[in-house]
Nucleic acid binder design. Structure first.
Lengths: 186, 186, 186, 186
DNA sequence: CATGAATGAGGCTTCATTCAT
DNA sequence: TATGAATGAAGCCTCATTCAT
């Protein structure tokens, strides 16, 4: 209880500082201060700074993906199912701006190596398969499935950032700007 | 071995390393080695590392923006004009992947300060105005202009990255996935 | 190897090297070697090199001034009181040649800023007042008080240096060469 | 003519900057700028920075000493002759504050090595001899001749500094504070 | 003689990591 | 487990000096 508490505090401190100042501008000393823990304590729970960064990333990544995607994987791609997943993810991002932004920062950083990617739950292939089915079933336009998949991510990310900054309550109209671009038309 | 040659080599070395390893993981010593120049030579052309980063950014930013945007500012928003600008920018990004990626990295980094922003040509307000006109003229859907502006950027960035990685020759169909999402419909 | 031990060793090493080689010709690396401490350890106890220099100065300055001057400030200027203060200060200087010489070096250096001066106990005005009284009371010759004050310092400093180098045991006759120059005469 | 001009300008620039900023805070680059000369030009006239410092010192030292002391060496020590030498030296110092202060700075610095001392015109022994004669002839008090010699210097230096700062026109009364301290008395 | 771009050793400082307590 | 003083490699930068022109 006490022990796990410290690990948690370290991760929270790191998350806060990483989003505020950037990963490379955050020293382990600062993290330990923010977590109210001794400098050496970090190394009881993490092998080194990179390990801390990675573990933080993986834990957040998992939290952000699992719930909503599991749903999708059990259904087929359609307006309703896609929208549901998109909405849930957006809601999570808007409610967890630090986590969301850290993920973004990490994904674009040199810390995002093959090693990290390998450890991330990979719904990729299943996801691509669903999109392919959507195309066959004339739900989605005949575009490269990978393009649709990445467009989904890009649009989702930018929308979350937009909502965080503008504090707007709109949601569905934003989803439509995405879906109208990829939906099947004669 | 001619004068400006060294400055150019330093900028090129920095660009290469920044995109490969990240700005903060690239030491000035490494840059000087890659540029085949002495450590101190960097400081003949730049005040310090941050100045080098900024000058690199500003030179690339200018190169990337001016040409195509100037065109847009002299026209109104429509399928053709938007597509033209989008295509030109995408082409530039695809042909200059390191420059493109460095700009992305920089824009999200702590190096992107008010100071740097002030020095970048800012078409923001004009751009928003054009979008507003597009909405009034029933070219574009009635969405927040800022949303459309940022969607344009996000879609553009992701598409460039997608094309670089997949080496596809497709272009217009990707633009359409964006335009279909924001075009006016009854 | 005990805590404050290292700080003390750093200060002692710095004092030794500063007087031997000059402040600017003494690198922090050399100080750490002389103190048998790692390079980074200096920064555990001091913010930077200037802070180390200042703290060294202030600690020595305090040690050198307070005791004897406090006595003077509680008495009036006369042969006996002046001599007592002069003798005590000379004795301190002769017994602490490195400290003495460091103070001299510092006082003439660019490190002696308003900031440092502000932190030094300043008996200046009181001291001038005492001299003015001495003149009124026909103890001292009618010379500018500031001249007397600075003559006192200059003579004192040179005498200490002289005694250190010649190892003479004389004291009072040296004080007299000063006092005879400024004492009241009809 | 042109060439010697540059050497002179370098020495003048160095003198100015050394007194303003201290020897160690003055880079050769700055000297060359102040002298309006290329960086490399300094090395046509001086072997290195230390050589420049030494040559500057020796030239000023000579200028300051020779004239007046030659007079003294041809006379015997007495109130008039001492006063004359003292006054002339003081006048030189007051009129050449930069030169005067540079000499002071140098004398206390690590640049003042045995080597430099050896190259300075040395009137020391003659000077001591004169003082010894003065003592024998009951002009001066029976103090160590070296003490008198150094007291003369110390008092002279401090007086020049005092006059420069206070801009006073007084002179003789200051000399008397020195002479009264060392003159013969029953 | 004169130039000034170029060099690279060396100075100050930070910070991830270790280890005795 | 937990601490935090200590370490020292490595980063950024300055500057005395050189050398091709």
């Amino acid at each position: 209880m006490v022990e796990e508490d410290k690990k948690k505090r370290i991760l929270e401190a790191a998350l806060k500082l990483f989003t505020e100042k950037g990963i490379d501008n955050t020293s382990t000393a600062l993290i330990s201060k923010e977590a109210d823990v001794a400098a050496g304590t970090i190394y009881l729970y993490f092998e080194n700074k990179v390990d801390l960064i990675n573990k933080l990333y993986l834990s957040i990544k998992e939290e952000s993906m699992v719930a909503s995607f599991l749903y999708l994987l059990e259904h087929s791609v359609g307006y309703e199912s896609l929208e549901k997943v998109w909405l849930e993810n957006v809601e999570w991002g808007v409610n967890n701006p630090n986590k969301f932004r850290f993920i973004m920062q990490f994904d674009l950083s040199p810390y995002h190596t093959k090693d990290t990617k390998a450890k991330t739950p990979d719904f990729g292939k299943k996801w691509i398969k669903l999109i392919e089915d959507g195309i066959k079933n004339k739900i989605l336009k005949d575009l490269p499935p990978r393009y649709i998949s990445e467009f989904f991510s890009a649009h989702f990310i930018f929308t979350v950032e937009y909502i965080i900054e503008t504090k707007t309550n709109e949601r569905k109209i934003f989803f439509d700007t995405f879906f109208n671009g990829i939906k099947y038309t004669d």
